[in-house]
């Protein structure tokens, strides 16, 4: 899939660990890890809303589209 999740970059910028973010937004570390490692198939608006709210960022900071070569 051409959508990449840049959660690790944003976390690094904000100096917040995955565990801390998981605690703050009420999502398990396992699920956040799936998101961070680009294994997720879909992301709920509610999850995106919670992450953006907590990290004070825009969805575009978290998601990036790259055209894949066939």
């Amino acid at each position: 899939m051409g959508i990449r999740v840049n959660l690790d970059h944003v976390l690094l910028d904000r100096r917040i660990s995955l565990t801390e973010l998981a605690d703050r937004i009420g999502i398990t570390i396992a699920n956040l890890s799936v998101l961070k490692t680009n294994k997720a198939r879909a992301i709920r608006f509610s999850t995106l809303d919670a992450i953006c709210r907590e990290l004070d960022c825009q969805p575009a900071d978290l998601l990036e589209f790259t055209r894949e070569q066939d």
Binding site: I27, L32, V34, L35, A40, R41, A42, I43, R44, T47
Partner: peptide
């Protein structure tokens, strides 16, 4: 089911 479990 897989889609559901990988929807975060």
């Amino acid at each position: 089911t897989e889609d559901q479990s990988l929807t975060i």
